[in-house]
């Protein structure tokens, strides 16, 4: 474990807690894309298949349980909770996430470390995580006023993967044969997708104006 990875995991944890806080306390999911939340639940479900078979560390297992539990409970809140679901913007959140899942699955069948179910699922989860934010970014473009919690949620979600890139660089230089192209390329693509959001988020913070993305 290195400081970059710990920072990444804590930032990722904070993004999930910010979202749960928003949904649980003010009972609103305005501006949040259910599609992205469902994609994240699928990412964790396919990545943590080995949660009960390969024990890495207590930390690893606890964090996996937190990410699985929070992502599925957020989807449940947005689908089932009578108050929260009322604030869900169904008309605007129309990104057909099936068109993200299928290419990632096909790519995982071709590009994987080993053609086994677990390895293909693991590669699929990495490709899917890279693009899972797209429905959320599209929704942000459409909904003019982005409230602070939603902006912070997306920012933290992007920042966590950026920390992971520093973690991979660090591990590449400190651990022999630490080379994982699938993880690196997916993580880089994922972070680049946030680039324009970061640009507008930083500017809105610098000029102390409300965050809004150009149409």
């Amino acid at each position: 474990m290195n400081i970059f990875r710990l920072a990444g995991d804590m930032t990722h944890l904070m993004s999930v807690l910010v979202l749960l806080l928003k949904i649980h306390t003010i009972k609103s999911c305005a501006g949040i894309s259910l599609k992205t939340q469902e994609l994240y639940a699928l990412v964790f479900a396919t990545r943590y298949l080995d949660i009960f078979t390969d024990f890495i560390s207590v930390y690893n297992t606890i964090m996996k349980l937190i990410f699985l539990g929070s992502s599925f409970s957020i989807v449940w809140y947005m689908r089932r909770h009578k108050l929260v679901r009322r604030s869900y913007d169904k008309e605007q959140d129309t990104f057909r996430h099936f068109f993200l899942v299928l290419p990632c699955l096909l790519l995982a069948l071709v590009m994987n470390e080993k053609f086994t179910f677990k390895e293909v699922m693991w590669a699929f989860s990495l490709y899917l995580e890279a693009v899972a934010i797209l429905p959320q970014l599209v929704l942000l473009q459409r909904t003019k006023n982005i409230d602070n919690l939603t902006g912070q949620y997306v920012f933290l979600l992007g920042a966590y993967r950026a920390f992971y890139i520093f973690n991979w660089i660090y591990r590449y230089f400190t651990e022999p044969h630490y080379v994982h192209w699938i993880t690196w390329i997916s993580g880089l693509v994922q972070t680049l997708l946030y680039a324009d959001f970061f640009y507008y988020y930083f500017n809105s913070w610098k000029n102390n104006v409300k965050l809004h993305l150009p149409a």
Binding site: D54, M63, K114, H177
Partner: peptide, 10 residues
């Protein structure tokens, strides 16, 4: 032999 790397990251 082809080493499958341990998935120790989240």
């Amino acid at each position: 032999e082809e080493c499958i790397h341990v998935k120790d990251e989240l």
